[in-house]
Design a binder for these strands. Sequence first.
RNA 1: GCGGAUGGCCGGAUAACCGCCGCUUCUCUCGAGGUUCGCUUUGGGGGGAGGGGAGGAAAGUCCGGACUCCCUUGAGCAACGGUGCCGGGUAACGCCCGGCGGGGGCAACCCCAGGGAUAGCGCCACAGAGAAGAGACGGCCUUCUAUACGGAGGUCAUGGUGAAACGGUGGGGUAAGAGCCCACCGCGCGACUGGCAACAGAAGCGGCACGGCAAGCCCCACCGGGAGCAAUGCCAAAUAGGGGUUCUACGUGGGGUCUGUUGUGCGCAAGCAUACCGCCCGCAAGGUCGCUCAAGCCUGAGAACCCGGGUUGGCAGCUUGAGCCGUCUGGUAACAGCCGGCCUAGAGGAAUGGUUAUCCACGGCGGGUUUCCCGCUGAGACAGAAUCCGGCUUACAGGCUGUCCGCGUCG
RNA 2: GGGCGUAUAGCUCAGUGGUAGAGCACUUCGUUGACAUCGAAGGGGUCACAAGUUCGAACCUUGUUACGCCCA
Length: 153
Amino acid sequence: MTPPNAPKDQAHADAEGSQSAVLSCSDDEIALITLAKRNDFLKAARARRQGTASFLLQGRRRSEGEEASGIRVGYTCSKKVGNAVARNHAKRRLREAARLVIPELGRDGWDYVLIGKKGDTSERPFDLLLKDLRYALKKVHGERKNGPQGAPK
RNA sequence: GCGGAUGGCCGGAUAACCGCCGCUUCUCUCGAGGUUCGCUUUGGGGGGAGGGGAGGAAAGUCCGGACUCCCUUGAGCAACGGUGCCGGGUAACGCCCGGCGGGGGCAACCCCAGGGAUAGCGCCACAGAGAAGAGACGGCCUUCUAUACGGAGGUCAUGGUGAAACGGUGGGGUAAGAGCCCACCGCGCGACUGGCAACAGAAGCGGCACGGCAAGCCCCACCGGGAGCAAUGCCAAAUAGGGGUUCUACGUGGGGUCUGUUGUGCGCAAGCAUACCGCCCGCAAGGUCGCUCAAGCCUGAGAACCCGGGUUGGCAGCUUGAGCCGUCUGGUAACAGCCGGCCUAGAGGAAUGGUUAUCCACGGCGGGUUUCCCGCUGAGACAGAAUCCGGCUUACAGGCUGUCCGCGUCG
RNA sequence: GGGCGUAUAGCUCAGUGGUAGAGCACUUCGUUGACAUCGAAGGGGUCACAAGUUCGAACCUUGUUACGCCCA
């Protein structure tokens, strides 16, 4: 994606986005994009959050002016989690959990950030970790403007 | 058999399902360029297949390089930093090998920044008479005067100390003593011998003079420019096409040029001749590594510093290299050489994973036919490539294996 | 990834080989009817850790740990 071609590619993606992107991902799955920018992490940190036994979830709906479609996910493991091996391991488990859960429960146009905890993120049994993520997603989505227990489709 | 010393190697294995990052290849699709409309080149996206994907320390960043940029280069000097027994290895090293010296251990073996203290300076607290060219506080002895707590002289055997006290022990000797003399030990110099050398041995000589600290300054020898892949180069986008302060300079010679400008003379004019300026060439001056010398370079506009503005994208560097494995040869060894074979991660907010089963060793509990077997259960050491190599240091569950030493027993 | 620095009392810092200090804070006493201020006295230290050099190390050398700063 070189810059001179970028505008053209953008136009194509918009024009044929409904074909390529959606068709490739079969029915309702939306591509997950990894967050990279510091700014996005800071915005997410100011939004809604929900802690669980194994990690902390932050989530927000992107405002106007930003890209409207797609789910973006970021992963954070600070030095508090441990040395490089421990941090990488925790991030891998979070990434795997997000891959399994977020396509079915996540909402289009939202940003999520998963934050690892010292010890618990790598040691918690994996099925419980998935349960935690489902629970946290519900809590983050809920309550605000979708009414009480806004049923996730 | 028990205890110990030392070197090398490994550092979980296999399978299933679902995933991640490069590479090769096939296919579908979307664009761009070329086109003889057959096709071809190139870029993006989707899918399939094949094959690859963390370490012995990837770590600490403590040394040494490769590579890139910066300073104009070379030699010498100075400054600063480093290294420090000798010989060898190496691209290089503060690393490695072999040897020497000192210390520890019955031994195998281990440890040592291990040059110079007669080049100079400095320091040696407290205690002690005295802490560094020895001198003399108490004491001992002789002598003088008036019997002296006084004067003169001799002397260091003796004096709590201290990390360290100016040779030690014994004998002779003396007024008291003293290497004053003798024996042994220690110490210094050392012909000569062995060794490339460090060094070792040593005839003989010297009556003893020369304390410690250089991981204090220093002296000697050798080495070293600075910064680091977030180096650096390219492409694209965007903004700007900037502002301020300070400093320095306004030479000279010759030749060419009148098809560079201008002036003057001649000519009606085209043009011809000539002068200043400009341009080219040279010289001088100035500047240019902290200093000197040499070479080179720069200088009519230039140099230095400060302020201000934009981007946070992509590509290259990026993995074939002092590379790895094996046979043989040389060498005590580190290592080197010939030949043959192999290609072994290249990500980029950062992939190499998630779950399960069996096995492998380990711990705990229970049971059994108790050198062993079965069941349940728990935790699989230290730790994650980030430009690449050679070392060092530090962390590390457990296991395999070679060589050697001491003690005991048996033959 | 690379480069560099710091660690001494509860806090901020001195201390360049010889019994470890200052200010603030703390405790007690005095002053006051009481408090603040002021005065006096006192307690509090594995000098980050470990080895080495030295007779002797907070200090010199080497390694380790923790914390912090810088880069295009």
